[in-house]
Design a binder for these strands. Structure first.
Lengths: 202, 202
DNA sequence: GAGGCTCCTAACCGATCGGTAAGTAATTCG
DNA sequence: CGAATTACTTACCGATCGGTTAGGAGCCTC
């Protein structure tokens, strides 16, 4: 049979992973990120993932209950790293410099991990229900609300729109770098920060 | 047989389309736009298009030589309308107001044609080789170059980056409206215009 | 009224998809 | 030693994909 590893004799709840299982799982996640990034969400098949990992399709499904579960795990993996990096940068900055820190941390991280970037954008545009677009800019909008000193946006709507503008600009800068690796994203980040802080100077 | 309609006895080059053929083609293009917009590029199958049009798969391929050709035609259809609208708006504006006209025209058109919008973004992210991302912001960058009075961006790189920022912001504003139809894109367009024109006031 | 053209249907094709079933070496454990 | 568990492979499944083939109804023309 090829059912799941059950739970190693004990009938309790906690799933304790073996050493090899942990290794395979993380390898499969890595391979999935690579493949989704390189060939797109639709062309990242189980067969392709399996081949790249040196095992068969069935072996992949032995470790993950479905392709969707594998892709979800891979997505959570890259997203967690991004969030950790950005949160650390924000916490290290002064409150009024938080939006600037956000912009530079986002662009910096994505520049250094192009595959992660491709995976995230791929998951956002093609992932079934990975995370809902209505909440996408909420964290940034909240951040702008907290940084009242430097970025004086009055209404909630204006704050929301500014978050959307900044977020969209970051997306586009990152996409540009994926298309042209020579594009200077650090300079672009500076220019975006200037633009945001130049607004409402009074 | 079900080959192409050849060219109606005459062996010359010009393909003259029948009345019914013209009608079917435009119907199929409309249906394709609908389906791609509603269910995404990957889930818009020939069978689905055919069913929605009330004919069979084979009949669709009788009018278009492949699914790719049909999608290409649909894409060109929606893109042509967008370009016509934006160009008209720019030509009607003063030179230094051209970027503002661009922003408002883009956002306005996309607001009024949400299906076209979805189709275009879908084609950009999932379309095989519809149009290359390296050239995407070129027209806007050129426009900024021409409007030297209001938007004083010095170097080519800064102009390029500003175009990317504006373009990305427009994308995000439009996406937000697709997720929340109550979102006030006209106000967002005004805010984006203000931000762009507030830059480098000296 | 026979032939030719347009516009379509029904049936089929090979490829590929995610997923399942059955069996089996290798390791661990009583 | 023998039983159980882990970590796989080979072979298969039904569904769906884009595309092809053969044929036929309806019209138009000589």
């Amino acid at each position: 049979m090829a059912t799941r590893p059950s739970k190693s004799s004990k009938s309790s709840e906690a799933r304790e992973l073996t050493l090899t299982e942990r290794a395979r799982r993380s390898q499969l996640i890595e391979v999935t990120v690579e493949l989704v990034a390189d060939r797109g969400y639709a062309d990242a098949s189980l067969a392709g993932i399996a081949e790249r990992a040196g095992i068969t399709k069935a072996a992949v499904l032995y470790h993950f209950e479905s392709k969707a579960a594998l892709v979800r795990a891979a997505h959570e993996h890259v997203l967690a790293q991004l969030v950790a990096h950005v949160v650390a940068a924000i916490e290290a900055a002064d409150a009024d410099q938080a939006p600037a820190a956000y912009i530079r941390a986002m662009i910096g991280h994505l520049r250094e991990h192009p595959r992660h970037t491709r995976m995230i954008t791929e998951a956002m545009t093609n992932g079934e229900g990975v995370y809902d677009p209505a909440e996408r800019w909420r964290p940034l909008a909240d951040l702008l609300g907290a940084a009242t000193r430097a970025v004086e946006t009055k209404t909630d709507l204006e704050r929301r729109t500014l978050a959307i503008i900044i977020g969209g600009a970051i997306d586009a800068i990152v996409s540009e770098q994926l298309a042209d690796p020579d594009y200077d994203t650090a300079a672009a980040a500076d220019q975006l920060v200037d633009l945001v802080y130049a607004d409402r100077p009074a």
